[in-house]
Design a protein around this nucleic acid. Structure first.
Length: 495
RNA sequence: GGUCCUGUAGCCGAGUGGUUAGGCAAAGCUCUGCAAAAGCUUCUACACCGGUUCGAAUCCGGUCGGGACCUCCA
């Protein structure tokens, strides 16, 4: 079964065919770095990280471009006034680029904690001013934009006469106009839906650049058009972002590309759904956002405890990327335990070595295992259904654990099946899902634990349960869980 | 108002018309010096009302509830 991707443009799953065989160009709208990223932002980047990883797993060479917006993002819907960076910089008496630096570093740190791979290219808006000026100039030359008093607007109504402006989210022009306010006396743009490509800066404005239209700064949507074209070309494979970006930001990107290059920028538009709290979207403006830091430390009034980055990642994997995901303590605790169970089984699986017997002694079990393994790729090919893959993985957990305890012999399945099981678990858990074991792997601690285990084994052999229980109880107080395995072995883990 | 999404067992959540998804929680059993893990078993749900069909959680229509977008947001 080939890879199929849900395309927002067609509102249907489509077979994925890259423009250049073996290569994928993917552009994802990154964060605006004027404040800390919250968990909802992280969800989108985790979703696309897994998409990126899976495309690589399939053998594609992927150029993954994710921008940093560090200029030009306006407050509110008025195409005038400050951008967010200038506003916060003035408030905090900082250089705008200090704000940008601070939150860019913070963003990268969080991405690393969540084990997201860095994109191939991470371009910034301020680093591509001349490209944005050039594309704006070209749109004017093509007749789809006009300049008034140093500000350049995109002429939406003119564009819509030639091609449907609301094509991405299936909206008609009349409906869009209905939801917009009347132009007031202070407005200089011609149409209610027109948006700024370039904005004239006031003299006191902290971030401004020279342009053919005077000193100013770029509009929000133009950066993505300029940067995606520069690094991926006029037409590339996948353009992604959060669902909230579809109606305005991505709609405008399509219009800009069409107006400038006479082509829609991407073949597949992918949108990830929102993270909610008590059923309402987590957002910066509502102030109901959790910061990753608060989650990892448990320092938040709504959190009962701290949750590890991998718990959060696993939590998100259990839901399909196009479904809303509701954030709650119960759900996170369930994920924490589920992840541990799955990862423990994986650790066990890694220890197995195939027996002498190459053929399966239990053909029924062997075919069941093979079927479940085969489902991993099958489910991922169906629009990246990570939740279903995890379902299949969990069905394999009892098989693995039974092998460990000798309830099932390892040669019940063929040597090739066992090898495949080990290979696919590693490929999926580590490479595709990007999960990892967070327990400290400390050599000193390992030595000490081995010593304690030896002492406890001797005590148990002598039926000196006072000593053996003391070791286990004291370790428990120190946060270490010591477990007796079948056959007299012992294992331990940090809680 | 417009464009969409959505309503699934105690909780989370996947579901391509016919086969118990899965996780967490709960209960029982097995293993065990005792624990903890682990294994086995149990809990079989699809908002409501119609329709199509041999058969609907799934398709169609309606009703009610929830949410998103249309204004800065991943």
């Amino acid at each position: 079964m080939p890879l199929r991707i849900y395309n927002t443009l067609s509102r249907d799953k489509e077979i994925f065919t890259p423009i250049t065989e073996g290569h994928v160009g993917m552009y994802v709208c990154g964060p605006t770095v004027y404040s800390d990223v919250h968990l909802g932002n992280c969800r989108t980047f985790i979703s696309f990280d897994i998409i990126y990883r899976y495309l690589r797993y399939l053998g594609y060479k992927v150029r993954y471009v994710r921008n940093i917006t560090d200029a030009g993002h306006l407050e509110g819907d008025r195409d005038e006034g400050d951008d967010k960076f200038s506003k916060i910089a003035r408030l905090q008496k900082l250089e705008p680029m200090e704000i940008v630096q601070k939150y860019t570093l913070g963003f990268h740190h969080v991405m690393q904690l969540l084990n997201n791979l860095p994109p191939s290219i991470e371009p910034t808006a301020t680093g591509h001013i001349s490209e944005q000026i050039e594309i704006t100039r070209q749109i004017i030359a093509n007749g789809y934009a006009y300049e008034i008093n140093g500000t350049v607007y995109f002429d939406v109504e003119k564009y819509n006469k030639e091609q449907p402006y609301g094509i991405l989210t299936n909206r008609r022009m009349e409906d869009l106009l209905e939801g917009t306010r009347e132009l007031g006396g202070q407005d200089e743009k011609r149409g209610r839906l027109d948006f700024a490509l370039w904005i004239k800066a006031k003299p006191e404005h902290l971030m401004q650049w020279p342009s053919p239209w005077g000193m100013g700064f770029p509009g929000w949507h133009i950066e993505c058009s300029a940067m995606s074209e520069k690094y991926l070309g006029k037409k590339f494979d996948i353009h992604g972002g959060g669902m909230d970006l579809a109606a305005t930001h991505h709609t405008n990107e399509i219009a800009q590309s069409q107006a400038c290059y006479h082509t829609s920028p991407a073949n597949y538009w992918m949108h990830t759904n929102m993270l909610t709290v008590n059923g309402t979207r987590m957002s910066k403006s509502l102030g109901n956002g959790f910061l990753p830091e608060e989650l990892f430390t448990g320092n938040h009034p709504l959190l009962e405890k701290a949750y590890a980055p991998m718990t959060v990642r696993f939590f998100m994997l259990q839901t399909h990327y196009r479904s809303t995901l509701d954030f709650s303590n119960e759900a996170l605790q369930a994920s924490e335990k589920g992840f541990k169970r799955l990862w423990d089984a994986y650790e066990v699986l890694k220890q197995f070595t195939a027996g002498e017997n190459k053929a399966a002694n239990d053909t029924e079990l062997d075919s069941k295992v093979n079927k479940l393994i085969g489902e991993f790729d099958e489910f991922m090919n169906d629009d990246f259904n990570t939740a279903k893959v995890l379902g299949s993985m969990f069905e394999l957990v009892p098989v693995i654990n039974s092998m460990k305890d000798g309830i099932i012999k390892t040669d019940a399945i063929a040597a090739t099946t066992l090898a495949l099981l080990q290979l696919k678990f590693k490929a999926y858990l580590e490479d595709v899902f990007g999960l990892k074991n967070e327990a400290a792997n400390n050599k000193t601690l390992n030595s000490v634990m081995n010593l304690l285990i030896e002492i406890r084994k001797e005590a148990k052999a002598k039926r000196d349960f006072v000593t053996s229980d003391m070791i286990r109880n004291q370790l428990a107080l120190a946060g270490i869980n010591l477990k007796d395995e079948k056959g007299g072995e012992m294992s331990w883990e940090i809680n």
